[in-house]
């Protein structure tokens, strides 16, 4: 079944502004479901969702699982280790076997860019990309946008700087596509070794100094620095990274205005972000996590063919 988003959510790149707003608007009432004593609506009752994770994930997988359960879907988790995946079965065969058991949706996390789109074109079930290689992580992008909208209002004209390892970040790409589509100004900031070649062609401004980004932005989205990037020679040391690009209270104090601070997690405290910033008054890192469940509920609900009036459909079980 295909709703307003189409059959799948493989990325934000090809979504229209209307579709993005629809997801964010649909997420608003779902926020409230998680605040109830009984955190459940029957919107996806009878639907079967498989969480197919080919990479380790704690936060995203649990967030999807909560979203599915709070929508009353039946869920199964398949991890790459201990399954047929580790016996050499291809991605498509794995998914088709699951589909033969009559499932409705696949949430996929995979280390290869394009894997979600690849799968979406080959199975009938709805596919939700939970992160594919260094391509996209669309529900993370949406939850970042929802969190920003909570704090800043309409995103048009707002300035968001994405800081750190943009080169290897699927979060960065989803943020860039989604935010620019809604009219926000986006910058990337980091060492040139960790920014993609020709990144400016994606419609973003480039800063190499964190102070410049802080002086320019309304919000910072601070990316996790994978520790293995140092071994791969992209940066000389974590210590220097923190000293040159770390988001510190000292640097933020010099900003003309308080900035909203986001981080997709998991954080390396003392590397890309200091604890007094992460835990400070302008951090929205935990609200991001809360919004993640609501956004994922909205995406699953819309892909299942739901319309904006979901609360009517689920009324009788309140």
């Amino acid at each position: 079944m295909a709703g307003a988003l189409g059959k799948d959510l493989t990325g934000l790149r090809h979504l229209s502004a209307e579709q993005l707003r629809l997801v964010l608007d649909t997420a608003e009432p779902f926020k409230e479901v998680s605040e109830r004593a009984i955190k459940k609506v029957p919107a996806l009752r009878g639907k079967t969702v498989v969480n197919l994770f080919f990479e380790a994930s704690t936060r995203t997988r649990i967030s999807f699982e909560f979203a599915e359960k709070r929508l009353s879907a039946d869920t199964v988790n398949v991890a790459s280790s201990g399954s047929s995946v580790s016996k050499g079965e291809t991605l498509v065969d794995t998914a088709r076997n699951l589909e033969a058991m009559r499932i409705d949706m696949v949430v996929i996390r995979h280390p290869s860019s394009g894997a979600a789109e690849f799968l979406a074109r080959r199975i009938r079930s709805n596919v939700v990309n939970a992160g594919d290689g260094t391509n996209e992580h669309p529900t993370q992008g949406l939850l970042d946008m929802l969190t920003l909208r909570d704090r800043l209002g309409d995103l048009a004209g707002k300035r968001v700087a994405i800081c750190g390892d943009v080169l290897h970040s699927r979060v960065a790409r989803s943020n860039i596509w989604g935010l620019t589509r809604l009219g926000a100004e986006v910058a990337v900031c980091g060492p040139p070794t960790l920014l993609p070649t020709r990144v400016e062609s994606m419609g973003v401004r480039v800063f190499h100094r964190i102070e410049e980004a802080i002086g320019w932005a309304d919000a910072l989205n601070v990316l996790r620095l994978q520790l293995e990037r140092m071994q791969a020679g992209f940066i000389p040391s974590l210590r220097e990274y923190n000293r040159v690009w770390g988001v510190t209270a000292e640097r933020l104090d010099r900003a003309p205005k308080p900035l909203v601070i986001m981080h997709p997690g998991p954080m390396n405290r003392g590397v890309e972000i200091d604890s007094d910033v992460a835990d400070g008054p302008h951090s929205v890192i935990l609200p991001q996590v809360t919004n993640g469940v609501a956004v994922r509920m909205a995406v699953l609900y819309l892909l299942a063919g739901g319309g904006p009036d979901w609360s009517d459909a689920g009324g009788e079980e309140r």
Binding site: S113, G133, R173, P196, T197, M202
Partner: peptide
């Protein structure tokens, strides 16, 4: 690298070969 390094590899999130 999996494709030519440039605007398209930046868009697709694929590692590039310059």
């Amino acid at each position: 690298g999996a494709m030519h390094e440039g605007e398209v590899s930046a868009r697709l999130g694929l590692p590039g070969i310059p």
